[in-house]
């Protein structure tokens, strides 16, 4: 797997099955036509990696916010007008902070759980079987394929979003950015950095 190569999916049989189930539900009046798309649009509305980047930049410039974010992310992101309550119910957000000797990376091995509100729609590789099965077993090799070479002394923790919470990585602030304001710091943060497959 490479960082730029989206996994190919053999999704056609599942897509056909989903359409069939949707049609049956509509026939029985349990689902309004277009309701699934509306729900997905509502869930994704406003979802963008810019939200995650804004959280990271605030945490870099404000140690108090950083501490609140790591202790209770759902409450802390409210300070930026952000929320994890866009779906049917509020999802718990857990933010894990990279350190000088520690790197975190997020996966959902069972499906593709992901904080859409803060990162936007997930990239294709995040949902690929290759990423999901390999990153828990050999994260150092997978990260190397993403172009992230970590020192052998760096401890790696993989977070499997296997149940109810959603996870986001707080990358380390790059060196030489002391002069940048919050907005320019946010512009440095990438979606891969928020998942943990890039340094920032």
């Amino acid at each position: 797997m490479s960082a730029t190569h989206d996994a190919t999916h053999d999704e056609a049989p599942i897509a056909a099955r989903v359409r069939h189930v949707e049609a049956l539900l509509e026939q029985r009046g349990w689902l309004a036509p277009g309701e699934v798309d509306e729900r997905i649009d509502a869930l994704a509305a406003g979802g963008s990696p810019a939200n995650g980047a804004a959280i990271v930049a605030r945490a870099w410039v404000d140690p108090g916010f950083r501490a609140r974010l790591l202790a209770d992310a759902n409450t802390a992101i409210g300070e930026l007008g952000l929320s994890m309550a866009g779906g049917l119910q509020e999802q718990q957000l857990i933010v894990v902070a990279n350190g000088p000797d520690e790197h975190h990376v997020v996966v959902c091995t069972l499906c593709s759980c992901y904080p859409i509100a803060l990162l936007g729609p997930s990239p294709g590789w995040y949902k690929s079987e290759a990423y999901r099965s390999r990153v828990v077993r050999e994260p150092r090799a997978v990260l190397r394929e993403f172009g992230l070479e970590l020192p052998a002394s760096t401890r790696i923790t993989v977070w499997d979003a296997s149940a109810e919470s959603r996870y986001m990585v707080l990358p380390r602030r790059p060196a030489g950015t002391d002069d940048l304001d919050e907005g320019r710091l946010a512009a440095l943060v990438t979606r891969k950095g928020l998942i943990g497959t890039a340094a920032v």
């Binding site: 077993r137 050999e138 994260p139 790696i156 923790t157 993989v158 977070w159 499997d160 919470s165």
Partner: peptide, 20 residues
């Protein structure tokens, strides 16, 4: 959140995996 040593999960590896 339960932390496992990769060695205990896979018989190899020096990382940790936290599973919910």
């Amino acid at each position: 959140c339960v932390r496992f040593a990769a060695h205990d999960l896979f018989g190899e590896g020096d990382h940790a995996v936290v599973v919910e």
